[in-house]
Simulated assay, not measured.
Amino acid sequence: MASHIGKLPVTIPAGVEVKIEGQSFSVKGAKGSDSFEIPEGITGAVEGNEIILTPADDLRPTRAKHGLARSIIAGMVKGVSEGYEKRLQIVGTGYRAVAKGQGIEFFLGYSHTITMNPPEGITFELPNPNEVVVKGIDKQVVGQVAANIRKLRAPEPYKGKGIKYADERILRKAGKAGK
Rank of each mutant, 00 (worst) to 15 (best):
P13T: 10
G15L: 10
V16E: 03
V18K: 05
E21T: 15
E21M: 14
Q23F: 11
Q23E: 10
F25H: 10
K28L: 12
P39W: 01
T43S: 14
A45I: 14
G48T: 09
N49M: 12
I52A: 04
P61A: 03
L68Q: 14
A69W: 05
R70Q: 15
R70W: 08
S71V: 07
I73Q: 10
G75N: 09
G75I: 00
M76K: 07
G79A: 04
V80A: 06
S81W: 08
E82S: 06
E82L: 04
Y84H: 05
E85V: 02
I90T: 07
G92M: 07
G94C: 12
A97G: 08
A97L: 01
V98C: 00
A99M: 15
K100N: 14
E105P: 03
F107Y: 09
L108E: 03
H112Q: 10
T115C: 10
T115W: 09
M116W: 10
I122S: 08
T123I: 13
F124N: 00
E125S: 10
E125N: 12
L126T: 02
L126A: 04
N128P: 01
P129S: 06
N130S: 12
E131H: 03
V133I: 10
K135T: 07
G136P: 00
D138A: 08
V141I: 13
G143V: 00
Q144E: 15
I149G: 01
K151V: 09
R153P: 00
A154F: 12
P155G: 05
E156R: 07
K159D: 10
K159M: 14
G160C: 04
K161G: 03
K164W: 05
E168G: 03
K173T: 14
K176L: 15
A177Q: 11
